[in-house]
Design a protein around this nucleic acid. Structure first.
Lengths: 239, 239
DNA sequence: GCGCCGGACTATCAAATGTTAGCGCGCGCG
DNA sequence: CGCGCGCGCTAACATTTGATAGTCCGGCGC
């Protein structure tokens, strides 16, 4: 059941059986969230963190004028709010973009892992660091890439991350987001988001219908995006 | 000498004397970097991390077309590349925006802290999490705030962070960056950066000359920025 | 089967942002 | 002392992006 977590953490360094057992021991209740429902709401103080077993979730922040910005997307195997364990107060919300099946990890148990399992602690820490690396890549994309390149970069990233947890199907993957939601990711208006998607489609490197994206020309997509997966730290080495 | 590090980590939770000693034991050589010099270069693999004792540094990434995006700014007391301890390969560079005096922490010693000092490990982990929280706030600013609001937000953030490490002078602080460098932070052209700075200046909430920013109306600046410092986790509580 | 509704998509015009070019000031250097 | 140069600043024009207002289509409830 925790297979995607093991795949996710295990891509960086090998996980021993004891560590897998420790991770299993972290978890308590499973829960389900419907589309549009908040998994965690902004401003709350949590005593547990949430692991996605299935579905797509987004961290977001809403501004006074009603604008929404999505700051990250989360796939199965992602600890969406692991940082809440130390950050304590949530400064943003987390919402389900598709029906989400999750499992809960108590902070008290996470804390005890930091007391007695240094290697596993480092791997969990690393997980949050990769999160930060993704944020940096998003900042670069928002600030200095063309919008088409930004979108291409996002698709490359999602494809690779989904591949790690075996949620791709050949060169296709399911992307259950509306254009309005995507606009909240890239920081664009819906109208312009549509233009950007059309442009990428017309360049022939992807097809996109029924919430399914198919990469027709990975090489060219990667070129448009200037995508270099180094920041995802996918090399398995001692950490 | 490590006073700014203690102030920085100590804002989140209290640091014991033993922990301060452990942190002292981490450090080895001090070094100096001139303006424009790389403190860490992109693509390198490090065996140490760098703590800023004095100066202003920036993480940045350069794209194929020559464009540069700065993904974070670092003040004294910041471990600029602490994550390299686990991420291993640098996917971006770090440069000195003003003359930087730094001190080096060996990764082998950091690792031993994770083996024997769980609470200090959590505080270091937290330090990297705040880094991530700042990234998220920057993403929101880039995506959904007006440019003037984005700039105002940056100034609020820098003021608060500098205040923690006692680098402010009343409502003023030193900001040794050119408009071109600032444009690389906000993701704007230099010309437009200039327009945005002028607009904020003309609104009368700040004055800005000789690389010194003075906040004339903190309340109004905070309003323009919709600045809420929660994400900086400045409450001292058990972590 | 009909009508409503959300989401993709388009057109038109307005506003924000970028590009290119150039001016002027202060400062370090020959 | 004069010259070059980085940097702040501006002007004019081009391009990108946003706002507003639709159309069209498919799913779903009645």
């Amino acid at each position: 059941m925790l297979e995607s977590l093991f795949l996710n953490l295990g891509q960086h360094d090998s996980l021993s059986d004891e560590e897998k057992a420790l991770l299993g021991g972290l978890m308590s209740a499973e829960r389900d969230f419907a589309v549009g429902q908040d998994i965690v709401s902004s401003g709350s103080r949590l005593t547990h963190s949430t692991l996605i077993l299935d579905g797509l979730a987004a961290r977001y922040k809403v501004l006074a004028d009603g604008g929404r910005q999505i700051t990250s997307l989360h796939v199965p195997g992602d600890f969406v709010d692991l940082y809440a364990f130390l950050l304590k107060t949530m400064d943003h919300g987390i919402t389900a973009l598709s029906p989400c099946h999750v499992i809960i990890a108590d902070h008290s148990k996470l804390r005890s892992i930091t007391e007695k399992a240094p290697h596993l602690t480092r791997l969990l820490w690393l997980d949050t660091l990769v999160d930060g690396a993704i944020h940096r890549e998003w900042i670069v994309a928002m600030g200095r890439r063309s919008k088409v390149s930004h979108l291409a970069h996002l698709l490359c990233e999602l494809f690779v991350r989904l591949q790690v947890v075996r949620r791709t199907n050949g060169m296709s993957f399911h992307l259950p987001v509306s254009q309005a939601e995507l606009a909240d990711v890239l920081g664009l208006s819906v109208v312009h988001m549509n233009r950007v998607i059309s442009a990428l489609r017309n360049s022939g490197v992807i097809s996109w219908a029924n919430h399914t994206v198919t990469i027709l020309d990975w090489h060219k997509l990667q070129d448009i995006a200037e995508f270099d997966p180094t920041y995802l730290s996918m090399a398995r080495e001692p950490r």
